[in-house]
Amino acid sequence: MVARAFLPVIRPMRPADLALVEGVEARAYDYPWSINIFRDCLRMGYECWVQLATERVVGHCVLAMGPGEAHVLNLAIDPDWHNRGLGRALLERLLTRAEELGAESVFLEVRPSNAPAVHLYRATGFRRVGRRRDYYPAEDGREDALVLRYTLREVAPAGR
């Protein structure tokens, strides 16, 4: 599919979007989340967003909040829509929401083999803070995850 000029829109994910979200997820990843995982994320009140282009869902993201921090659980763009700034726009939406909701840091895991995602996260300001061994399923067994952190605001050490 060739993308024409479009007006990108990011809006909260709705239950009616789930089949389309699942389709994007299946095109974006070899080991996609199921529709039930997305349904549970909505039910639990996670920050779930969709990226629209030409009035159709072409991407999505999920953010979980915890005390003082947020965790990007999922971010995907349909491969037909890569390299148009849509992933960056979704990531920036998540960072803005995390800050609005009081997070000091945002964490995520990414496959080292997913070079475009690693590049996006590093270019946005995420820094590596760890590695999770055998985190992701892979064709030949398991793949590690890089753990990255984005600092929204510096916090003074306790006692100062």
Rank of each mutant, 00 (worst) to 15 (best):
Met1Pro: 12
Met1Leu: 11
Phe6Trp: 10
Ile10Lys: 07
Arg11Gly: 05
Pro15Cys: 01
Ala19Cys: 00
Val21Leu: 01
Ala26Glu: 11
Ala26Pro: 01
Arg27Pro: 00
Arg27Asn: 02
Tyr31Pro: 04
Ser34Thr: 13
Asn36Thr: 10
Asn36Gln: 11
Ile37Leu: 15
Asp40Glu: 15
Cys41Ile: 02
Cys41Tyr: 13
Leu42Glu: 10
Arg43Asn: 10
Gly45Asp: 07
Glu47Trp: 13
Trp49Phe: 15
Trp49Cys: 10
Trp49Pro: 03
Val50Cys: 11
Gln51Leu: 15
Gln51Lys: 12
Leu52Pro: 12
Ala53Tyr: 10
Thr54Arg: 14
Thr54Pro: 04
Arg56Leu: 09
Val57Phe: 04
Val58Ser: 08
Gly59Gln: 06
His60Gln: 15
Cys61His: 08
Val62Met: 08
Leu63Ile: 05
Leu63His: 06
Ala64Val: 09
Gly66Lys: 04
Pro67Met: 14
Pro67Ala: 15
Gly68Val: 08
Ala70Asp: 02
Ala70Ser: 10
His71Phe: 04
His71Glu: 09
Val72His: 01
Val72Phe: 00
Val72Arg: 01
Leu73Glu: 01
Ile77Val: 14
Ile77Cys: 06
Pro79Glu: 07
Trp81Asp: 04
His82Tyr: 12
His82Leu: 11
Asn83Leu: 12
Asn83Pro: 03
Asn83Cys: 14
Gly85Val: 07
Leu86Ser: 07
Gly87Gln: 05
Leu90Cys: 08
Arg93Ile: 03
Arg93Pro: 03
Arg93Leu: 09
Leu95Val: 03
Ala98Phe: 02
Glu99Leu: 05
Leu101Asp: 09
Leu101Gly: 03
Leu101Glu: 14
Phe107Asn: 00
Leu108Glu: 00
Glu109Met: 00
Val110Cys: 01
Ala115Leu: 15
Pro116Tyr: 03
Val118Pro: 02
Tyr121Asp: 00
Arg122Ala: 11
Gly125Pro: 04
Phe126Thr: 02
Phe126Trp: 03
Arg128Asp: 05
Gly130Pro: 06
Arg131Ile: 13
Asp134Tyr: 12
Tyr135Arg: 09
Pro137His: 08
Glu139Arg: 15
Glu139Trp: 13
Gly141Glu: 12
Glu143Met: 08
Ala145Gly: 11
Leu146Ile: 09
Leu148His: 00
Arg149Leu: 11
Tyr150Cys: 04
Val155His: 12
Ala156Val: 14
Pro157Ala: 07
Ala158Pro: 15
Ala158Thr: 13
Gly159Lys: 09
